[in-house]
Design a protein around this nucleic acid. Structure first.
Lengths: 102, 102
DNA sequence: ATAACATCTGAACATATATTCAGGTGTAGA
DNA sequence: TCTACACCTGAATATATGTTCAGATGTTAT
């Protein structure tokens, strides 16, 4: 129940916040994330939908997975990706709505 | 009352969304924004609080102003900056909270 | 084991970005 | 007008980032 009202963010936390937002700071990643908020998709599908190579998608997914933005599970030869949790989806959608209503 | 449920974001909109999030994708900018959510501050104060040069702050503020993230007004020799609207503040705080409770 | 497919990986490259530096612009007061 | 101060600007530089390429790894079926 502390009422802490600091006027500037700690350097270490600020770096983490920046890292979180940078997950959504690239148009390809934004399109990838928008695609997997509804459904889980494999690398090949994402590559086709976004219009970049499977390798590029894979690199992005590693990045996003390391940051806890997406989760993955294997089904046979394919790996399916989806957004980690609803909190992330809410944050992402809030950004999208700001643009769509801007 | 349209029920549009597209599975992937338009390329043009995605680019704008990425641009919005990239405003918060740098630790210095995150600290700048955290400082001016409560109060309006001039360039020199921000430079001291964040720990970068006034020039660097000025460059960031131009970037943020062009994106509609912050607004500025002159008071004598100084220029005071504050966050443009509550929608931006809410988006920013949601990101910060995600990290702080992570 | 071999082949076919899906994904991953690391190096290389091209581009974007943050910061500094040196100097320019605008404002207020003497 | 001159000086001091606050901020801005553009060039330069260093670093970060996204993508591609070539090849490696893992999976399934024959």
């Amino acid at each position: 129940m502390k009422e802490e009202e600091e006027n500037i963010l700690d350097e270490h936390i600020a770096a983490h916040v920046a890292e979180l937002f940078s997950a959504f700071s690239d148009a390809s990643r934004v399109r990838i994330i928008s695609a997997i908020t509804d459904q889980e998709l494999n690398v090949n599908s994402l590559a086709q939908m976004v219009g970049i190579s499977e390798s590029a998608v894979s690199h992005h997914m590693r990045h996003l997975r390391q940051m806890g933005i997406v989760k993955a599970h294997r089904k046979g030869k394919e790996v399916f990706y989806s957004v980690e949790d609803d909190h992330i989806i809410a944050l992402f959608k809030q950004g999208v709505n700001h643009i769509k209503s801007g």
